[in-house]
Structures are given as C-alpha cells and as structure tokens.
Design a protein around this nucleic acid. Structure first.
Lengths: 148, 148
DNA sequence: CTGAATCATTCGAGCTTCGAACGATATGAG
DNA sequence: CTCATATCGTTCGAAGCTCGAATGATTCAG
C-alpha cells in the first residue's frame, strides 16, 4: 500500500490478471469445443444440468448469469444436437424442464477432456503444487462468487 | 485421470473456472472504471504505455492481443480525455508514438485503485497466503502466455 | 526510380447478448 | 368462481464490441 501509486500497480492486481488470463483460457477452451459444434456457454449449460443445480430455464439463466432469452437459444441448439430434452413440468406447465440425454453426457465428457487438455497446455510452466494450489484457490473463489 | 469421465469433471478444470472468474472479475473491474469514463481495454492500454513495453499502435495491438483498428479507437478516446498524446515518430513518420500525459498517469493510478478495491472484494474469503500464492501463479501464467 | 512492405485509419459486417413485448399458465384476493 | 397480477418461456429488434478488408501515406530493398 504505497502512498504514491507506483508504475506497475495495475498489472500487479489479481482482477487485472484474472481478467486477461480468463479471456485467454476461454479462447483456448472455445477453440477446442468448437470441434464439437459447441460454444463455451453450451458446455456451461450442460455442466449446470449435470450438477443438478438447475433444471428450469429460468434457474439456468440465473445460474449462468445470462438473460433467459439466451437460454432459449442455447437450449434450442443443444436440443437440435440431441444433447438435452425439453419437457413441460406437469406440476407447473409454464416451466420447461431440461434433462441431459446420453448424448448430452457424452458431449459433456468430451468438453471435460477438452478443458483438461487446455489445462495441461496452459499450466505447463507451473509446478505440481502450484497447480493444485491454483485449482483450489479458483474453486474457493467460485464457490463464493458464482450465483448458487 | 479417471477412465470414465465423472460428473463434475468440467467444473474441476482450471480453464473453466478461470474463464468464469475472469469474466466475473472483468465485470467488477469494468463497473468501477466506468465511473472514470473508461473501459477495461483503455486501462490495459494505459498500463502497457506506462510499462514502456509498447509505444507505436502496432506494438500495442500485438501487446494487447487486439486488432490495430481497435487501438485507433481506444487511442482516439484516450486522446479526447487528455490521457495520451499522439506524435508522429520523426524517424519513421508512419508510426504514431503514444505517450502518457500527467492526466493519463492520474487515470492509470485511479484504475489501479479500482482494481485493488475489486481485488479486496473478490478475495475477501481467501487467507493471506492463499492470496499471495494466487497472485504469483497468475503472474507466472501471464508471463508465459501473454504476448511480450 | 520502382515495386513491395508497413503503419495508421476508415468503414462495413459479424457475433454475442440484452431488454421489451407477447402468449400461456399459475396464484391470490374477494 | 372470477378477475387481476405475477411468472415462465419465447420472439424479435437493437446495442455493444471487435474484426478484416480496403485505402493512403511512408519506408525500404534492389
């Protein structure tokens, strides 16, 4: 905490580097899942379904932090790929309940593979303890700041 | 490395969490610098200039990983704010040499403050050793993957 | 001197996401 | 039961951001 802001103050920040590297990581992940015909948000939706943390589109929207209207498009495309099924909730027929199909689980697994490959590439210069420490830190932050 | 991809495989990934948290961090930082009339990319440009790692717009473009045509717009706006000066390089009159003004340094300092405030908020749930470890990991990754 | 390469700039297009408006359904008050 | 209100999903148009191609000025190699 210097009185006068030094030169490299911004670049020493966590948010700044997290933003930069986050974009970089997203791009690499995006490149890989593109071969599956998916965007990162599709993977996020599949993961949320798999985690069981959300079933209706409204819940998914808040879970992923995007507009409900975007969920419509993503779900349309995933349904087109046979990855999810849309069923009206009999107890509340306004709701669309999304469920993973076998194909959806397969795609999710391949997304995970893509992410792991990107991980290996990205963290190649880190020592093993550094990598596990990073994983844990990110998880902690995620649990605290990603809408539940 | 399990044979069968387990359920939460994707969410356990570094790239996935890095992408999610990176977007989150960028948003929080963006909210704060917006009050200065800036976007995160403006801050990035100012920081690059301050670091002296790039002076011409072409260099800035590769440094920030964006199209040269975007640098034009960003520099226009920063010039409008009186944060940078554009001078033709006398040794190569194709080049525009950008330099930080006093106002530019002031703005950069306020960006740094904004980032530090966002840091404190974001990492409130981390222990001090966790935070420093995270900072170092991110810096290591940045040095390896951000274009120099 | 001439042709190729480089820099900055402009302009139009693409992609992603959002918000408003709408219909269908559910819920609560009277 | 009935009506007003709220919620869910959907469609559609608009906004923001970024890129790539085309252009003019300048430099460089031969």
């Amino acid at each position: 905490m210097s009185d006068v802001k030094g030169a490299a103050a911004l670049r020493a920040t966590i948010v700044f580097n997290l933003g930069t590297l986050g974009a970089l990581a997203s791009d690499r992940f995006a490149d890989r899942v593109e071969e599956l015909g998916l965007k990162p948000k599709h993977a996020g939706l599949l993961a949320a379904l798999d985690a069981g943390s959300a079933t209706s589109q409204q819940e998914l929207a808040t879970r992923l932090g995007v507009a409900p209207s975007l969920i419509v498009v993503l779900a349309d495309q995933l349904q087109e790929l046979g990855a999810v099924e849309r069923v009206r909730d009999p107890e509340d027929r306004r709701r669309q309940v999304l469920t993973l199909t076998t194909e959806g689980r397969r795609l999710l697994a391949r997304c995970a593979e893509a992410a792991e490959a990107a991980d290996a590439e990205l963290t190649a210069g880190l020592t093993e303890p550094q990598r596990t420490a990073l994983t844990r830190s990110l998880r902690t932050l995620g649990e605290q700041h990603v809408p539940r």
